[in-house]
Design a protein around this nucleic acid. Sequence first.
DNA 1: TGGCCCTTCTAG
DNA 2: CTAGAAGGGCCA
Length: 334
Amino acid sequence: MDSAYPQGLPCSKPSDSREPAPEPETYEPEENSASDSRESSPVPESYEPEENSAADSREPSPVPESYEPEENYASLQMSSAETLHTETVSPLPSSMDLLIQNSPDSSTSPSATLPASAENGAGKEEQPQAKKQKIRTVFSQTQLCVLNERFQRQKYLSLQQMQELSSILNLSYKQIKTWFQNQRMKCKRWQKYNWPKYSHSMTQMNSATTEYLGLSSCHQGCLVNMNASGNLSLWSNHSWTSPSWNYPAWNSQTWCPQSWNNQAWNNQAWNNQFCGYGEESLQPQIQFQQNPVSDLEASLEMAGEAYDAILQAPIYYGAQQSADLFSDFSMNIV
DNA sequence: TGGCCCTTCTAG
DNA sequence: CTAGAAGGGCCA
């Protein structure tokens, strides 16, 4: 059932192009009645109230009561207060965060933060200038980690799932949605440019997928892996001793079509890296224990995805972020 | 309404 | 200069 395509094809939709929202497995019809009630927060002003269509509204409370089951995910919850400073990104004055509705995590560039309109505070609608300045949010590593991790397992999220994620990451629903959309496009492009080398077999295709998925977040810095026993292991990039890791870092440039053509390692170089590494090949430095399969599982599963997916898909996190993310787990430096 | 896709434009 | 977040048009 879950064969859908989470692992099969990275981003390509089941069949044709536009399909509403694949991902059958995790896609639960639910009563997502778009206009779901949770709409306590008046939507940050900085964000155009425009299409906050219910969805956009994010509840102030950490986790919606209705989501009992996934409550555990709260462990991942980025308490705006805590995660704030862990970020490598410039921390924003909490007050401002709220205003911007962006996460405390995401730095909406402290400097250019407020859109002209919001800046004035009062005269919001009266936009003197032609266009309102576009704000380019810079998601924090933590947020990216979670997003990537999620994307690895699910390319499409349901409304509810996006909302959950948004509240957890302190991002707006819209941002989550946009991020996933952009990610899908990115993935698609990646596939397109790399297709030739995987065209010969389906298996290869999967590896391509894995490759993409893995790479999509490897730039985070280090890797967090959960073994079958449910323990979480974390390797900082400092520990990579494997020669294979000497390849160019997975930077954004990698996505650039122009670059893809020249990247020598665009071929098998890192194919090996990501297929080769395993629990054995790397030395775990930190292990998260406590309720291995309870909290974490619940946390990562969040909306009920297959747990095994996680077991097989190493997740990359920034060392610091990881520690932060899983601060709820007792860490044993090995 | 959300997804896709292309475009715009800002942060780094 | 580039990556990528966000805007906007179009479609089902």
